[in-house]
Design a protein around this nucleic acid. Sequence first.
DNA 1: CTGAAAGCGCTAACAT
DNA 2: ATGTTAGCGCTTTCAG
Lengths: 347, 347
Amino acid sequence: MAVTLGDVARHAGVSLATASRALNGSARSVTEELSAKVRASADALGYLPNAPAQALARSSGATIGVLLHDVADPYFGGIARGVGDAAARAGLLSLVTSTDGDPRRELEAIRMLHAHRVRAIVLAGSAYNDVSVIQELDEALAAYQEQGGRVAAITDHGPLYDTVEVANKEGAAALTRALLDLGHRRFAVITGPERMRVAEDRLDGVLEALDESGLTPVEGMLQRTEFTREGGRAAMARIVDVARESGTPLPTAVIALSDICAAGVLAELRARDIAVPEEISVAGFDDIPLATDLAPALSTVRLPLARMGEFAVRLALREGGGRDLADNSHASAEVVLRDSTAAPGVY
Amino acid sequence: MAVTLGDVARHAGVSLATASRALNGSARSVTEELSAKVRASADALGYLPNAPAQALARSSGATIGVLLHDVADPYFGGIARGVGDAAARAGLLSLVTSTDGDPRRELEAIRMLHAHRVRAIVLAGSAYNDVSVIQELDEALAAYQEQGGRVAAITDHGPLYDTVEVANKEGAAALTRALLDLGHRRFAVITGPERMRVAEDRLDGVLEALDESGLTPVEGMLQRTEFTREGGRAAMARIVDVARESGTPLPTAVIALSDICAAGVLAELRARDIAVPEEISVAGFDDIPLATDLAPALSTVRLPLARMGEFAVRLALREGGGRDLADNSHASAEVVLRDSTAAPGVY
DNA sequence: CTGAAAGCGCTAACAT
DNA sequence: ATGTTAGCGCTTTCAG
């Protein structure tokens, strides 16, 4: 049915091997003359290589896999875009799997990607802090690597993988200091679930910066939740409720360690008629595309999402595979102050 | 290196064929006893099927491809998520390609997906109105279909494909009528590029509804631009400038036929200190996740993005492949009025 | 530089 | 019900 390399070879009057070399072979060992003839036959017949067959023969596919929580989430969407672009540049297609951060599904996804013999796997989700979970994932990835697979991680997933180091902690600390400089002293912070390393890293940055100024978040002013809009909303509600019940004054600044969460925070504050930034300053993290369009424009920490994805692919595809730590890419995090933050009490 | 089916068969003391049937075969023709033995051996050895080999042997891969403009765009991200979920449910992985709406790249992507022998291709981007472009794409897809590939389109891409029909026109008309009902009479509309069918469909809906009320947009009050934030911003700027230069009053309602555009519109209006909805009402289209968090909360038309992606996969994977028109899915569009729209002149 | 032939790992007739 | 065996389309030694 389909046109095969054999058809092309016959049409061009050359052997299968020559046709293969002319079209897809890496080694330059075909006369330009024959090569041209083959190429001509190829598109005269509308030849399209059979990728699975190539993958089988070379025992390495022309795809790269991406593991992430949710493509529809702007953070991951940005990364997926970068991975896809870099993959395309390398002539590869990208296989993306949304796991909702469920380790079981991640494990399953890794196995599938492995089965598909993807050239590399990009770990875009957060690493976990739960040892038993890590172990299973590491084992699956180790099996994959043993068979020649490359894996690159975005944010630290341990020393076994090439990693695009993201300045999560530093960024969070810088953001916190910016708020401190504005004069804030009463903070609330909303972070992700304890099991997510990224969330903990960011939190560490905040706490460290706070500590430098001799501050510690009061009981109830540190909330953990999923990195979702709804999670952020609920966390903000809890913060207000806790403050009111205990008769404590509201914090003057709340740091949500994800822009999506921050969107929820803003929504909750609006619903409660608490003015931002007049009564409470709000900051997020990631600088997703619409951060600047929120009400008010969200102060946040900018991460080069697409670039991170591209870096990861570059790391994974790099020749040799020598994994010197020095080769790890580094993604910077830049504080972007917009309208959702202001000095406390100026109004 | 890798554990193969042969290894499993040997370990279990059965033939290759039996092992194959026990593990991946569809036909129930293996004793439960042997089958169990094979499965035991399989995971004792850590067997993972070689997907490319399976694809080659069955001449059909375990992947489905998605063609879209940009995964990082919330509209497409939502669709990609739906496609990925539905694919996963069918045991497939999804290959996503961002083409930025460039026909050349789409063509290239189709060829690659075809080469990878994906089980189905989901056309998530808009169809084009340019015949010469359509033809090339249709040819590439026809070649793919001839070799057993299935294709499903989201929004109308012609009668050659299964399609998830999206109520773009109807939704746009309904939205317009809602604005009309609010009392608006001076409209501006920002749509996408002429070459995109989706943009034209939505525009048709608006114009039709306007026409029902005896209205037609004045010169300059109909702007075409890319469906991007920046495009929306620039278009809004032009609208204001045109109005001022010609001494015409500003429109009281502007309809941006994409939420992303609408975000840009809101930004421009804010920059010019034009109050929304007091001076101008603004509405978008799609209801992307953050639409409700814009300033002010954006009135729009809700599309079930993820569902659309799922439908497309279901259509494409459906047995038989009989493409009665009656089988096409239909995605409804629901008007959602939020704070960015109000009756004109009430302030 | 080119061709012949042996697989890559699996499925699917075709026997038995 | 299970085993044998011939491919699937391509890459890649190995000869020539």
